[in-house]
Computed example of a mutant assay.
Amino acid sequence: MTDVFETDDPETDAGATVLEVRFTGDEGRLDRALALALPDLSRARLQALIAAGAVSLDEAPVRQGSAAARAGLYRVAVPPPESADPEPEPIPLTVLFEDAHLIVVDKPAGMPVHPSHGHARGTLVNALLHHCAGSLSGVGGVARPGIVHRLDKDTSGVMVAAKSDAAHAGLSALFARHDIDRSYIALTRGAPHPRAGRVETRLGRSTADRKKMAVLRNGGREAITDYATLRVFGPDGRPLAAEVRSTLHTGRTHQIRVHMAHLGAPLLGDPVYGSGGVSPVVREAVAASGLTGQALHAAVLGFVHPVTGEALRFESAPPPAMQALAAALSAL
């Protein structure tokens, strides 16, 4: 038997709603039982709350949704919904170009591009809203004003955002036609084989882990990356690491990260596609460099201004952590 109550609790995070569910017998899996008892919360949402420590049984945190629902009082602390409207924040930006229609910035590693679950503040959108004082294009929607492409949170480098709707439409068309010059610099574990070439695959969600992208035999979307090895670190016959330049012809999620892993040279510092198999000396170099995510930098962005017709090209040097890591690797 199940009873459900909604309470206010000063011990929880401000604004959280605490739902109490009392199970009196065998209810099967916990996440499934809670989803049945709390129909306003999906099973996936409850699994996330359990993983975040927001669910407890008789005051003790529960960490596994697959565990059996035991008799007792479960408490589910549901945080308040995040505002759909991102707030302007006075976050410093490195502006490479700006006019009435668009702005080009050098995004630092660690900054998400737009608000999402867990990243409501501190994003590039929050910074742009403050810097541009409300002049961003609204075509991208409330949460992503002006955004026509994105970089992963831990990928640094050159990005363009639209300030006018005309620029937004024009930039979106350029990206859709792949009529953009985009080159990236990466530091990899080992070196890709062959040292240079083109990777043409289908990319889609991994069937083994839905949080990851993967090269697929069937389905997915076409993904094309040209690459060239610029430097090899360590013995040429058995390199410990390499510096690789990649040029995108498509813009799929995690494209370079997946393609480099597919070539046997995952990016250093990549917690999703390349965390294992790093030699001790390279691991020490990564730790000493201060790198906190994948060693990937958007170094070049070139395009024709969608309103003025001017040819624009921007270059950016890798951030200090990547430069420090490359210097350490060159000494191996």
Rank of each mutant, 00 (worst) to 15 (best):
7 T>N: 03
155 T>D: 00
196 A>N: 13
172 S>T: 12
186 A>K: 08
10 P>Y: 06
329 L>M: 11
121 R>Y: 08
181 D>W: 07
46 L>P: 05
15 G>N: 08
57 L>S: 07
178 H>P: 06
51 A>K: 15
203 L>W: 11
247 T>A: 11
283 R>A: 15
28 G>L: 10
17 T>L: 15
293 G>D: 10
126 N>D: 02
200 E>P: 05
262 H>E: 06
34 L>Y: 06
251 G>F: 05
330 S>I: 05
246 S>C: 15
145 P>K: 07
205 R>C: 00
104 V>R: 08
200 E>D: 15
7 T>K: 15
265 A>Y: 05
258 V>R: 07
21 V>P: 10
50 I>H: 04
211 K>H: 13
186 A>C: 15
121 R>E: 04
289 S>D: 10
148 V>C: 07
181 D>F: 10
301 L>S: 04
201 T>A: 14
101 H>M: 03
6 E>H: 14
329 L>F: 11
30 L>S: 02
184 Y>R: 05
220 G>N: 11
272 V>M: 09
120 A>I: 05
301 L>H: 11
286 V>H: 08
298 A>C: 08
263 L>S: 05
157 G>I: 10
215 V>L: 13
271 P>A: 13
33 A>H: 04
226 D>E: 15
89 E>H: 02
118 G>P: 07
93 L>Y: 08
111 M>S: 11
119 H>Y: 12
198 R>Q: 14
124 L>E: 09
54 A>P: 02
131 H>L: 05
149 H>Q: 07
151 L>H: 05
74 Y>M: 07
103 I>W: 04
251 G>C: 03
309 G>S: 03
60 A>D: 12
160 V>M: 14
42 S>E: 09
140 G>H: 06
73 L>K: 14
40 D>I: 04
300 V>Q: 14
107 K>N: 01
330 S>P: 04
35 A>K: 00
142 V>P: 00
222 E>Y: 12
118 G>L: 10
295 A>P: 01
13 D>W: 14
228 A>W: 15
180 I>S: 08
14 A>M: 10
144 R>L: 08
248 L>D: 06
39 P>V: 12
188 T>D: 09
81 P>Y: 04
193 H>A: 15
15 G>E: 03
37 A>T: 03
240 L>R: 14
152 D>W: 12
208 A>I: 12
318 P>H: 03
210 R>T: 08
238 R>C: 12
92 P>L: 03
161 A>S: 02
88 P>L: 10
228 A>R: 15
250 T>D: 06
206 S>M: 05
8 D>M: 08
100 A>N: 01
225 T>H: 02
115 P>R: 04
69 A>C: 06
57 L>H: 12
157 G>T: 10
219 G>P: 03
185 I>A: 14
171 L>Y: 01
77 A>K: 01
298 A>T: 07
323 Q>P: 03
85 D>G: 00
213 M>C: 03
46 L>T: 06
251 G>L: 07
113 V>R: 08
253 T>Q: 09
173 A>E: 15
33 A>K: 04
266 P>F: 08
279 S>W: 00
196 A>R: 14
150 R>S: 01
153 K>E: 10
245 R>T: 10
225 T>F: 10
149 H>Y: 03
319 P>L: 15
6 E>S: 12
122 G>T: 01
12 T>S: 13
73 L>E: 04
18 V>D: 06
162 A>F: 03
332 L>H: 09
83 S>C: 03
73 L>N: 07
